[in-house]
Design a protein around this nucleic acid. Sequence first.
DNA 1: ACCTTTTCGTTGTAAAAACAACAGACTTGT
DNA 2: ACAAGTCTGTTGTTTTTACAACGAAAAGGT
Lengths: 219, 219
Amino acid sequence: MKKYISVLKRTQLFSGVGEDEILSMLSCLTAKTGSYKKGQYILHQGEYSGNIFVLVEGKVHIQRDDYWGNRSILGQISVGEMFGESYVAPESGALLNDVVAVEDSVVMMFDVKRILTTCSSACRFHSLLIQNVFFAISEKNKKLVQKLDHMSKRTTREKLMSYLSEESKRQNNSKIAIPFNRQQLADFLAVDRSAMSNELCKMRNEGLIEFKKNLFTLL
Amino acid sequence: MKKYISVLKRTQLFSGVGEDEILSMLSCLTAKTGSYKKGQYILHQGEYSGNIFVLVEGKVHIQRDDYWGNRSILGQISVGEMFGESYVAPESGALLNDVVAVEDSVVMMFDVKRILTTCSSACRFHSLLIQNVFFAISEKNKKLVQKLDHMSKRTTREKLMSYLSEESKRQNNSKIAIPFNRQQLADFLAVDRSAMSNELCKMRNEGLIEFKKNLFTLL
DNA sequence: ACCTTTTCGTTGTAAAAACAACAGACTTGT
DNA sequence: ACAAGTCTGTTGTTTTTACAACGAAAAGGT
């Protein structure tokens, strides 16, 4: 557990909290860790969960497969980011998505009740933690709104441009690395891979973008 | 302000708090009210806001118009629901959407800082309030995920079925009233209105659904 | 270094959506 | 009750997407 303290220190969740405090909070919050091999499911659609998860190693996808095997990727979680926070309310029901490790991953789980109920013991930073969770969840919220923004575009090209521009804005660079391969990007934007691939090449021919593998440049 | 206490009492935000307590909390939170005529903008895309809003009268849409006038409706807020909560984090930046009154509306605004910072005075229920905000925001999160679920469907028919089934599940009834007219529903699902109208009628002819105005029945 | 598997681009065809234009039904205000 | 405006369904055309199939390039394992 201790080896991940330095990772936690840099997360939005524990922002402003020192390493020593984090260590004591972890026991107070009865945090648990879990390791998952590439491809393993961390959470299954339909399950119930009252935990907030923080990824401390690896990379995971929040996704969903329908009856016919069509996959839809809701989002990608990198080290330091949080997931599972949409289901912490008492009546929020079953998970709507699977959470899958796309690389060997380690997650940390926190019982929500423990987070929200200020403890009597040494956690001087508990109220700060609550605030951090709050901000983290509202940022997540904003991310979802941004994704909806891409998805509400009518054409594949518009979806691509919307996604790439936002990513460029976020990374503050016209050269960006995206965390998806082509199939994953297609599943993320809810379009057909081959049609998307085709559209990307057209855009390149028209001088709008350049790309090589998952490295894109906006022109 | 007092006339809306009974409305607030029934919101998720003030769940578990009595009317008397709400009244004292309102001043402690320095809550403000605002009235808007049908069609008026409550918030503008690009603005900054550190407030959480609760609708206490009327009906508003969270939406966005692009350069070419294409409208996209992110969501609809009914009396008792909250909005603006995605932008409360210190670094969350400008609003991505407009908020527009689709009926004469009254909103209540709360400064986030006031909510998160436990006050010294009489607010015995303050920590409960924080918990409530937390749950409310995570529910909102889930709503967005559900909307993404509809939008990730490839065909108009699938989007419609996804939306209508969820609504039916939520209202626990196969007969449902939707809060949109045709154009609004199309803007909500990001499809063309006439194509959608067409699809709805095909679905009716095939015996999948029945509808009259904004009343739908799943068969 | 070789074989296997995955990823990516390409093409053609079929299906679906967008777009535009219009008529009838229904609302709203006066 | 009437006129003006809005909402909804309908149709035909154009554009875009999905789907399927394939070969080349790249990646990964032994």
